[in-house]
Nucleic acid binder design. Structure first.
Lengths: 192, 192, 192, 192
DNA sequence: TCGTAAACGAGACGGTACGTCTAGTCTTTGG
DNA sequence: CCAAAGACTAGACGTACCGTCTCGTTTACGA
């Protein structure tokens, strides 16, 4: 089947998501208004709603599109990798203007299950799986001290970070990350 | 100094907070409407706004007032106490109709710093301190395996719970709680 | 220039003004509520406020739109015409349910100058000019006894009517109107 | 029977009415707020409402109390007296900050008949009767040209003034007053 | 080249809730 | 019983923002 009618302007998505990023940085997630998105992007509200079913969908997509290369180089030392992954996670959550956390927390209100699923699949799971995988590799190398499942460990780390930054509004220091990683893993390459 | 003018009707606070509790149970936090609170409580909206500067303030106060006896009996066995505290925390966060989490997550949007402070002092900190204290007692008894600070451990546990229940929307099973406690503590009374 | 965007629903003005007329007849001007207008007309309050900046603006427009054919047939006898105009004016002011007077008096409170101008141009002046013109024709026919300017005479007549009906709340009888007209004009056709 | 309890503070009435006058001058009738009256006068709202049943009652009383010596010296020349009375009436209505007219117009909205009666008896009628009496004296002196009843003439004059100043918002010039008096009366002392 | 079909821009519209304002009443303490 | 102070009721107001709708206009493709 051939596409009929005027094709979608490929520039629209770009202009809109860029406007969203700008506005998120400027006014934060709770200050984001669909009319502002429309006027800043120069794209009509109708057009926006043709592509995204709600403001939240738009934000989720925008964030997902701007996450980009979370993949890290895998080295020989899984513990070092773990350290790196943890630092990166804290950073990606911690930026004040970073809307990832705000959106995550806000979505809780939402009854729209599909939207939550989408958010989880596109934004949460990639990061979570990265951590779980890394932990598994640590375990595979016999350097995981904890007997807890990698998934549980991952949730504890991510959860602690979210709690600290999002709810307590206190920083997650490099020292703390270090201590946690040390706690979880066996230092050196001492396996037995 | 003597109080002048008509004293505030002490029944108002009670009627209003009760109405809030009822409505939260019925329709949840996102379905809470100030006009409903007014009509259900029989208190004029003006009066409500005289005492609480916003709907959120009201909810925070209501929840704080209804938390009540979170204190648990302290036994000889700090590890057993810890277990109990953890279970209770998971329950208090996990109840579907429980608005504590919803409010916590929603407050993130709010720029009102005073409100967040209030929420933290009245609702978050009591629970958090309870866990920190219990962990400290475990440590004092020489039964803490982890070398992490009790506060960090507490944040990890609470954070994991919030993350699981609030964001991943997956249950925090009794087994998982058990495993975490086991991981953190030295089993038995193998202290000396 | 081409009209852009969704055109204003022409039915809205009609539905709203009709609702206003109904409500004015039912509850009078002081009982008119914007929410009632919205619900009776089936037009959203927001939409009403998009077209009229206040309830009063709406009422002024509504009345102006419903004044309709105040023009009377012009006969050969200007004195007879004058008599007819005077009777009509008294009636149009005097009807109990007629909001013209109520609005006129209420507008006095209003500091909104533009609104008063509008009221005057759309509602007051047409009636006033009709009377002034008729008096001028009487004068032109040499049948005006009074040496006062037609405009002053008109103001005296209209003012007396408003004062009687609106402030004294006493009727303006046909006899009184008759007497006034007789006083002002030269009876018979004793012109030449 | 002896008066029981605390006697009414005689200063209250004075302080309140003075505050009303000040506020009327400052913000006009439509800007008059009962709470402002209370705070400016230093008299509690409760006390005000014990003495006046409504804000409007208070204003009516205040105005009545501040009208003062409208009585004019009666001379030998009734036409000169009439002239003087007319000028005075125009002035008393015309002052921009003068609330007499504003109140009169506002009372129209009010369904409270007793209040309207009071306003009429205390404020309107004195002025009206003064004009009617003066016109009667002119008539008694055989110098009334018009055959209209003095009451009707009075209403026309007062009505015209109100209409001009209150609704048309145009001045009533000395020339116009002069012309009207000339029209009504026989100049000189030519009686026959 | 012309018709068709969908995308797009612009703005009107419906609806829901919010927080505010203000008149008049009620409830205390104190004189 | 009066006065002061201020809490309280009741009802309306105008605003904000979302997501939908209704046009006129534009852009591609196919007949």
């Amino acid at each position: 089947m051939v596409a009929k009618g005027r094709p979608r302007d490929p520039g629209v998505n770009k202009r809109v998501t860029e406007a969203v990023m700008v506005l998120l940085a400027e006014k934060g997630y709770s200050g984001l208004r669909i009319d502002d998105v429309a006027s800043v992007s120069g794209v009509a509200k109708t057009t926006i709603y043709r592509r995204w079913s709600s403001l939240q969908q738009l934000v989720v997509d925008t964030i997902a599109a701007n996450l980009g290369g979370r993949q890290l180089a895998v080295t020989d030392d899984p513990v070092a990798d773990l350290r790196q992954v943890c630092v990166m996670l804290v950073e990606s959550i911690g930026t004040e203007s970073n809307p990832v956390l705000a959106v995550a927390l806000d979505l809780h209100r939402q009854s729209d299950k599909e939207l939550r699923t989408r958010y989880r699949e596109q934004i949460i799971d990639p990061a979570r799986h990265l951590l779980v995988d890394t932990l598994s590799r640590v375990k595979g190398a016999g350097r995981l001290r904890s007997t807890l499942a990698p998934a549980d460990l991952a949730d504890m780390f991510i959860g602690a970070t979210i709690y600290r930054l999002g709810i307590l509004r206190e920083p997650m220091t490099a020292n703390q990350v270090e201590a946690i990683v040390d706690q979880i893993t066996v230092s050196g390459s001492a396996a037995s």
